[in-house]
């Protein structure tokens, strides 16, 4: 059996103690071990953003971020955005603007936008575009996504 390394991490607020191989990515850990299939694998080379998750609040590419590097850290995924079945303002804005079609990029897009809004709660349109420029969407032509993030920022500011 290949050697494993013991790690402790929290995923969407839930603590996990796991033994993982050194070459396992956080995306594979989430998808195959923890059953959290929200983060998606697409380009598999850190340029499309579909696998984006947050580690200690920072957006990372789950396809290349090693699970062992998340030891002792907090991981947030798309599955953790809603609270008790209630969508957060960003999720709701994505629905209001039809900011997705096939939806394959959506989990990563939402997590990049989450990181952006955490750092900059009132981004300008240009800042939103810069914030999601590392996430590819092949369906929508991006404009509905940009509008959705701006709406979520507006909603966040009003709370």
């Amino acid at each position: 059996m290949p050697e494993t390394i013991d790690i402790t991490l929290s995923v969407n607020g839930l603590a996990h103690e796991l033994a993982v191989q050194a070459n396992v990515t956080i995306a594979d850990l989430l998808r195959l071990e923890l059953g959290l299939t929200g983060a998606k694998i697409s380009c598999d080379m850190q340029v499309c953003g579909a696998c984006t998750v947050l580690v200690d609040g920072l957006a990372v590419s789950g396809c290349t971020y090693l699970a062992v590097d998340a030891d002792g850290r907090e991981v947030a995924t798309v599955e953790g955005l809603a609270t008790d079945g209630v969508l957060n303002p960003l999720q709701q804005a994505f629905i209001d603007h039809a900011a997705f079609q096939c939806g394959y990029c959506t989990p990563g897009m939402l997590m990049s936008a989450t990181a952006l809004l955490a750092e900059n709660p009132r981004p300008s349109r240009a800042e939103v575009i810069a914030g999601i420029d590392g996430n590819i969407c092949r369906c929508t032509g991006y404009l509905p996504i940009i509008d959705a993030v701006l709406q979520a920022a507006e909603a966040g500011a009003q709370r």
């Binding site: 959290l36 299939t37 929200g38 983060a39 995924t77 798309v78 599955e79 955005l81 809603a82 969508l87 999720q91 994505f94 629905i95 997705f100 939806g103 959506t106 989990p107 939402l110």
Partner: peptide, 9 residues
């Protein structure tokens, strides 16, 4: 398909 697609479900 909105809720399913924005929640990862």
């Amino acid at each position: 398909d909105g809720v399913a697609k924005v929640t990862g479900a």
